[in-house]
């Protein structure tokens, strides 16, 4: 029993979801929000991010490797549960199920999003305001992006709640209740920032 590494993989999964993936998510949504200040403002911000020194290394080690470890191990976790909302319709059990549903959906969304922007960039396309504008001109893609952002912010905020339990920060039921409200606030704030940015391209 003690020979297995599963405990460490689980802890790593929990850690990477917040540091660095969660931090990157917040940074990304904040930079996107430049779009609300107009095309030029967004393009300048995107240009700064693009021009960061060691960009490829930063992308690989702060974004892609942690993100895909978290995502693929997360899919394994999601598919080893047997959801039972009919027997236990409690708030936390629904959050447990939603965490798994949004995790899988976010993986699909993020993979598509990376394909459409980063991979396209590697193949010569320009990542700028115009690119997002043309993607979001399609109403189906607009709906997909809004759903994707809500799913991602939900997964992050609710994941932050379980991060606090997993790392032994919130123990008592009352501290866990308070962190439910705090993470709900984070969900609402990040969702507002994300959706405002999307609508700025429309």
């Amino acid at each position: 029993m003690a020979n297995s590494r599963e405990f460490y993989w689980r802890r790593l999964h929990s850690l990477l979801g917040v540091i660095p993936v969660g931090i990157f998510l917040m940074q990304h949504l904040v930079v996107n929000h430049y779009a609300t200040r107009g095309e030029e403002s967004f393009n300048n911000a995107a240009h700064v991010m693009e021009g960061l020194p060691f960009r490829l290394i930063l992308e690989i080690f702060i974004i892609f490797l942690p993100l895909y470890f978290h995502a693929i191990y997360g899919v394994y976790i999601a598919f080893t549960s047997r959801n039972n909302p009919r027997q236990f319709g409690t708030f936390r059990n629904w959050m447990f199920i939603m965490q798994r549903v949004t995790g899988v959906f976010t993986l699909i969304f993020v993979t598509w999003h990376i394909w459409e922007t980063r991979i396209a960039a590697a193949r010569g396309a320009d990542v700028n305001f115009g690119m997002m504008e043309s993607i979001l001109a399609d109403p189906f893609m607009l709906a997909f992006y809004i759903a994707g952002v809500v799913s991602t912010t939900f997964h992050f905020a609710n994941g932050l709640w379980s991060f606090l339990v997993t790392w032994g920060v919130t123990l008592s039921p009352s501290s866990q209740r308070i962190s439910t409200y705090v993470t709900l606030g984070i969900f609402l704030a990040l969702t507002t920032i994300g959706i405002r940015a999307i609508l700025a391209f429309v």
Binding site: S4, R92, F96, W161
Partner: peptide, 19 residues
């Protein structure tokens, strides 16, 4: 003993148990 296969790492915080 609970830091291995099937140990505490497998808890998903659905909190049905306490209910």
């Amino acid at each position: 003993s609970i830091m291995g296969d099937g140990g505490i790492g497998d808890c998903g915080n659905s909190q049905n148990c306490v209910q």
